[in-house]
Design a protein around this nucleic acid. Structure first.
Length: 857
RNA sequence: GCGGGCGUGGUGGAAUUGGUAGACACGCCAGAUUUAGGAUCUGGUGGCGAAAGCCGUGGGGGUUCGAGUCCCUUCGCCCGCACCA
């Protein structure tokens, strides 16, 4: 203790380094944040998306974990039994890239990163139960994942089939979509090919309807995330139609959501991956080349849809089902997805933009069959018409609206037996096979006789072999003969292990459940998970709005079906935070410059600190290493302290929006924390002693400010509006700074104690320090949240805005329960009002008690 | 291409959800003070105007007694798109 004599307090600044370390030790020694199951206490499970151990924490982590920590500490103060754990999403490609580039084993690299990042997170003073830490790359974690996979197989939730991948012929490896740049492998530069590989799938599509319906129950999720998931699931009601093909026995099955436009059909198109395309390509070199060319695109939907729409006329024709004698050409087209519907469509160019682009390119007919109300001479140019209207050029459908026409076509098609109504989903099954080393091994053994045989439970875990090298292309598991070659568990013959590993999304789809019982022998301890689950507040980046969250929702259902859990929805509350941005700097030659290397030269011009070359400030962008606009959290915490960093993260920017990192922002937070420390350290000795009984303080104005702040901060924290709670704390501190310790001692003590408790979740170290200075022995971490005395907030009079014809003309102060005539009289007595009326007759007066009075003339 | 979001002073943002636009903070201006500190304190600060006042929430239009908030339209920027995590 160095700061506790009055002299020191008055003259020194807050010694954050020493204090933060001291309070972190106090929390740890007291076991403050160790969560224990207690059925008598209401639980609250706060979880932030766990980090990938990429090396060091970044500002996005600081923001994410600060917000979660505020919620955790606030809920703890409110009397909840809080679970707030931390772990590592530790499998993934960067570890393998490091192995290739830096010759370090993925495990070694990963665990070293975890050590660094754990140490950095601990510097932040988070209220985390570190005894529950898990890492997904540890066999103690992934053995349970393998067990659940086997249970999922038994429950019929798993499928094995072929699927397309991006293949790099030089690196002999499968590429992620992000590794395909302009159709070439990111490392080798070789043209990417598409290959079909046998892969494992989770049958998430069986839950499509349920996952869609249950979105309505997630009332503490952002609407936009629910909407994005609903669109992703993409339920559509349409019609499957079989067209007769000329000169062939079998028909062509297409799926359409616009059967009403069938009279406008001018072509059919099938996916390059369609079986018919493959059949026609045999002995047709041109078509084969076309299909191969399509295969050189990436597999991503964005790449497919953005590519210019091209097709290949197969020469085949189908018969129009309703126009006798009319035939329609069949194309193979690059924009048809095999995964959706039947992999074949009929194109009606007038009413679908993609079809229109295609038709214009190949000179196909564009016949409008839906005409907007009142436009009889309607034609389509370069923009397809997708709105409502009346059917035209469509024989028996003419003059119907779109919905009626859809129904009529469906009825007629079904009557002929050439098709049926069908509900389709855009959602595809979740392919989980990854041809990589650093992931959870898929516990399957392939036997020539028995096929794919699950590894028996007693043989789990299937551990990754450690003696692997990355000096050759391809998956090291594939060439690890000792690990790979095993006996078939069924028949005992020589067999080989599955060398694919799980998608890392599998790891992150159930970690929240593992935190409830991280040491359990089974994947979950049901008593623990039944108590703690679901997660009450989940916090993370918007970039996970779809995949991670949807997969976790599926996994919860699968775990319920297999008895591993009792819940369907994993995350009762969800909050998605914005990103951290920073100004970018470039030299005249366009190279990025780190903020730390930029200084002001002569005048205001920016220059490079060493080369003195001129530097241009660019727009603020998401912090990224490639743009060199990152600020290292550890250096910020060392310089300003964890509390200052946390306070800045919470200030100003609404948490769901992007936050601009600025030097002035962090120094502003730094000054505020010192100002608050000084305010309390300097007045502590002049205050009356710690209260023991009811408050009898007299300064009601000050007390009103204090209790209004309690209500405001509580509401704002409850709504996760951290920036507003920060503003309210500022307001309270401003009010307290104006108070006189000699005159309003008791009220001031109440106010200072209150503000200390209110900042507790946000600046926990400083709060402990101030609480001690104010004479308390107990930790803030163990203290209850302040409760407002609402009776102090009742005011006798209210200030009312007075408008004349909606224009603000002044204010009046009247009793809060004043009747209309009192308010009117007061309003009309205002000189600004009489001036604005200018003698006109009043036609109407609108009086909204407590809000406004509006005089109309 | 499809889907989603955002736009308010010099800056970050606030606005009880249709009722006094700009809380709070940064910056800036003026002053004070000093143990010269990553200072502190006091006052001012949306724009135009001497003032009265007028104008102001990306642009245009509409609904309403009243619109930052609701509707239509338009522009700009950002995010996601299934093997990144």
């Amino acid at each position: 203790m160095t700061t506790n004599t009055p002299q020191n307090r008055a003259t020194s600044r807050y010694a954050f380094k020493e204090a933060e370390a001291r309070w972190q030790t106090a929390w740890e020694d007291g076991g403050c944040f160790v969560a224990e199951q207690d059925p008598n206490l209401p639980k609250y499970y706060v979880l932030e998306m766990f980090p990938y151990p990429s090396g060091r924490i970044h500002m996005g982590h600081v923001r994410n974990y600060t917000m979660g920590d505020v919620v955790a500490r606030y809920k703890r103060a409110q009397g909840y039994n809080v679970l707030h754990p931390m772990g590592w999403d530790a499998f993934g490609m960067p570890a393998e890239n490091a192995a290739i580039e830096k010759k370090v084993h993925p495990a070694e690299w990963t665990y070293a990163n975890i050590d660094t990042m754990r140490r950095q997170l601990k510097m932040m003073g988070l209220s985390i139960d570190w005894s529950r830490e898990i890492a997904t790359c540890h066999p103690d974690y992934y053995r349970h994942e393998q067990k659940m996979f086997l249970d999922f197989i038994d429950a019929g939730l798993i499928d094995q089939r072929e699927a397309w991948v991006n293949w790099d012929p030089v690196d002999q490896t499968v590429l992620a979509n992000e590794q395909v740049i302009d159709g070439c492998g990111w490392r080798s530069g070789a043209a990417v090919e598409k290959r079909r590989l046998s892969q494992w799938f989770f049958k998430i599509t069986e839950y499509a309807q349920e996952l869609l319906d249950a979105l309505d129950t997630l009332d503490r999720w952002p609407d936009k995330v629910r909407l994005m998931q609903a669109n992703w699931i993409g339920r559509s009601e349409g019609l499957r139609i079989e067209f007769e093909m000329e000169g062939r026995d079998e028909g062509l099955e297409v799926y359409t959501t616009r059967p009403d436009t069938i009279f406008g059909a001018s072509f059919c198109a099938i996916s390059p991956e369609h079986l018919l395309a493959a059949e026609l390509a045999e002995g047709n070199a041109k078509l084969t080349a076309f299909i191969e060319e399509c295969g050189r695109r990436g597999t991503s939907e964005a790449a497919i849809e953005q590519a210019e729409k091209v097709g290949f006329n197969t020469g085949l024709k189908v018969k129009h089902p309703f126009i006798l004698g009319k035939t329609i050409p069949v194309y193979v087209a690059n924009f048809i997805l095999m995964e959706y519907g039947t992999g074949a469509i009929f194109g009606c160019p007038a009413h679908d933009q993609r079809d229109l682009d295609f038709a214009r390119k190949y000179g196909l007919d564009v016949l409008p069959v839906v005409v907007p109300e009142g436009q009889n001479d309607f034609t389509v140019g370069d923009i397809a018409y997708t709105g409502s209207g009346k059917l035209a050029n469509s024989e028996f459908l003419d003059d119907m609206d779109v919905e009626a026409a859809k129904g009529e076509i469906a009825r007629r098609i079904e009557a002929t037996g050439s098709g049926k109504r069908e509900i389709n989903f855009r959602l595809r099954d979740w392919g989980i096979s990854r041809q990589r080393y650093w992931g959870c091994p898929i516990p399957i053994i392939h036997c020539g006789d028995c096929g794919a045989v699950p590894v028996p439970t007693e043989d789990l875990p299937v551990e990754l072999p450690e003696d692997v090298s990355f000096d050759r292309p391809g998956n090291p598991l594939d060439r690890h003969d000792v690990w790979k070659n095993v006996d078939c568990p069924k028949c005992g013959k020589a067999a080989v292990r599955e060398t694919d590993t799980f998608d890392t999304f599998v790891d992150s789809s159930w970690y929240f459940a593992r935190f409830a019982s991280p040491q359990a022998d089974l994947p979950t301890d049901r008593a623990a998970s039944d108590y703690w689950l679901p997660v009450d507040q989940y916090i993370g980046g918007i970039e996970h709005a779809i995949l991670h969250l949807l997969y976790s929702r599926f996994f919860s259902r699968a775990m319920k079906k297999t008895g591993h859990s009792g819940i369907e929805e994993p995350f009762a509350g969800l909050f998605t935070q914005g990103m951290i941005c920073h100004e970018t700097y470039t030299t005249t030659s366009g190279d990025w410059v780190e903020p730390a290397d930029v200084i002001e030269g002569d005048g205001d011009a920016l220059i490079h600190v060493e080369t003195r070359a001129p530097v241009t400030a660019g727009r603020s962008e998401k912090m990224s290493k490639s743009k060199k606009n990152v600020i290292d959290p550890e250096s910020i915490i060392s310089t300003y302290g964890a509390d200052t960093a946390r306070w800045f993260m919470l200030s100003d920017s609404p948490p769901e929006r992007d936050l601009d990192w600025t030097e002035s922002g962090i120094t502003g937070a730094w000054r505020f924390s010192n100002r608050l420390w000084r305010l309390i350290a300097e007045s502590a000795d002049a205050l009356p002693p710690v209260r023991t009984g009811p408050d009898d303080s007299s300064n009601s104005e000050l007390r009103r400010a204090v209790h209004a702040a309690i209500i405001g901060v509580t509401q704002d924290l409850e709504a996760l509006h951290f920036n507003r709670s920060v503003a309210r704390v500022h307001e309270l501190v401003n009010a307290l700074s104006d108070a006189d310790a000699a005159k309003d001692g008791a009220a001031l003590r109440e106010g200072l104690e209150t503000v200390t408790l209110l900042i507790g979740p946000m600046m926990p170290h400083l709060a402990e320090e101030l609480w001690q200075i104010l004479g308390h022995d107990q930790l803030v971490a163990d203290s209850p949240w302040p409760v407002a005395d609402e009776s102090l907030l009742v005011q006798d009079t209210v200030k009312l805005a007075v408008q004349v014809r909606g224009k603000m003309r002044g204010t009046i102060e009247i009793p809060h329960d004043a009747d209309e005539s009192t308010a009117e009289q007061a309003a009309l007595a205002l000189p600004t009002v009489t001036a604005a009326l200018d003698g006109d007759e009043i036609t109407k007066i609108i009086y909204v008690p407590g809000r406004i009075i509006n005089v109309i003339h």
